[in-house]
Amino acid sequence: MKPRPPTPASIPTKLTVNFVLPYKSEIDNKEVDMVIVPATTGQMGVLPGHVATITELKPGVLSVHEGNDVTKYFVSSGFAFVHANSVADIVAVEAVPVDQIDPSLVQKGLAEFTAKLGSASTDLEKAEAQIGVDVHSALNAALAG
């Protein structure tokens, strides 16, 4: 494994991002200005010099800002670590560019799971239906915004 850079004395200008999925490394050691990750508490912006953080991600949009380019991915779930040396690691199970999402399937799924949530009886079914509703609403929001 490549050794990580040590914590610099002053705040660096760029953030180094590693965005990995199980089947590929989407972004590898790229220097960017900012990333916005969908943390469980809401969208969290990470800038160079951000305090070291561990955060769990919820289904939502991850955007990478480099100069004037913004690349958006929809992330299903995962973790993001920000280290003191301005390196951000984002590990996700599944991430797709937002334009690969099919809106009609999203609507269909949302309707199905909302119905399931209403009719769920056991704890497990309720949890599954709730997850379905959460994911599909997040997909909907990603397509809209």
Partner: peptide, 25 residues
Amino acid sequence: FWRAAGMTYIGYSNICAALVRNCLK
């Protein structure tokens, strides 16, 4: 809620990923 219902994080993340994959073009 998912841990209270007996799922592990792996289970939760797998379900989320499967749902997202299902909504692709």
